[in-house]
Nucleic acid binder design. Structure first.
Length: 327
DNA sequence: CATTCGTGAAGACGAAT
DNA sequence: ATTCGATTTCACGAATG
């Protein structure tokens, strides 16, 4: 029963003698600095310059190491993990159709009736046609998009749970499965404080922003999902990294944002707008060249909006005091 | 020439009615 | 369901270097 799983799981993690096998893949391509894995965000970032190197990685194998057969036997966990990403959560039971017990003897009529009942229950829970036909493609979509966006597994799982709940409450009726799946993933990412922008979602989804945003609002309200407005700060590291700017600029941008928050400047504005404005302002303040065009490009915020926001951000810090510049 | 800056019209959204 | 106010976007042109 377990032969396929063991061959898959027995792969050893590569030897940890870092210096010997230290290829270019373990160094930051920008500054040769050390790379650190951020499991929370599903990213690998350079400790020195903050560059996000690889947003979605391949599973390198088991997280444990074994030095002999006995130890391997102890540590190995057989079978795939249970997951919300499969319509039956990766757990399934099979009931033989034959009316015989494990020794091949025929069952009593009492037992036969019981087995008949069990079979019926088993098949309805597993192959409920309408439910599984909705759930399977939906969870496949969630998985595909989540992976394309570099979101960690736990986000995809909560997205799946959200979709299930929506489905249980009959909220999918009349809406496209893809739309609800996209909305669920969007919600899950925000709940986990690893938000993706609406435009980022659209790039990997089969439905347009308008549809999934509408759907998102609907299921969010109906299911009572508690989702706070996105803190612009959560976008800063990603945008800074995409723009290839220094940690100097990043610190400055964060300073501006927190100063703006103090004065309630965040309310009513799109979080990405604030982040974009702060980053551009930070670029000017630290004399690091960034054009509005470039910032607009990676943040999906128009140049006009950046122009509108960044003077307010500069105003927000103490007049006279320039915590960012000092160059 | 590239970049920044300002404007009016238009669309979308949340809140209030 | 409609209205209202604020925000964002688009398309343009002007100013700046």
């Amino acid at each position: 029963m377990n032969t396929t799983h063991t061959t898959l799981r027995e792969r050893e993690a590569p030897e940890a003698t870092t210096d010997a096998v230290d290829g270019p893949a373990h160094r930051c391509p920008e500054c040769e600095g050390h790379l650190a894995r951020d499991e929370e965000r599903g990213e690998t970032v350079c400790e020195d310059c903050g560059l996000v190197v690889d947003e979605d990685q391949i599973d390198p194998g088991p997280e444990w190491r074994a030095y002999d057969a006995a130890e391997r036997e102890q540590k190995r966990r057989v079978g795939p993990p249970s997951t919300k990403l499969m319509h039956d959560e990766g757990l399934s039971t099979k009931i033989d159709w034959r009316n015989t017990d494990t020794n091949g003897r025929t069952l009593s009529s009492r037992k036969r009736r019981q087995m008949h009942r069990l079979r019926r229950l088993d098949s309805t829970s597993k192959a409920n046609p309408s439910k599984a036909r909705t759930l399977q493609p939906a969870l496949k979509e969630v998985s595909r998009m989540g992976s394309a966006l570099g979101l960690p597994d736990h986000v995809r799982e909560t997205a799946s749970v959200i979709f299930r709940r929506a489905h249980d409450e009959d909220l999918v009726r009349g809406r496209s499965i893809e739309g609800v799946a996209t909305a669920a993933l969007y919600a899950a990412a925000r709940q986990a404080d690893i938000p993706r922008t609406a435009d980022e979602m659209e790039r990997v989804s089969r439905v347009d922003v308008k549809e999934f945003q509408r759907t998102y609002r609907y299921i969010s309200r109906e299911l009572g999902l508690e989702i706070r407005p996105v803190d612009p700060d959560t976008y800063v590291d990603r945008f800074i990294s995409d723009l290839g700017l220094s940690s100097e600029v990043e610190r400055c941008a964060r300073t501006l944002l927190s100063a703006a928050r103090e004065q309630g400047l965040h309310s009513g504005k799109k979080p990405t707008s604030m982040a974009a404005g702060a980053i551009y302002a930070a670029g000017v303040l630290t004399n690091e060249k960034v054009t509005q065009e470039e910032v607009s490009e990676v943040t999906d915020v128009t140049k006009v909006t950046i122009r509108k926001r960044y003077p307010e951000l500069v105003e927000a810090v103490d007049p006279g005091e320039t915590p960012c510049a000092a160059l």
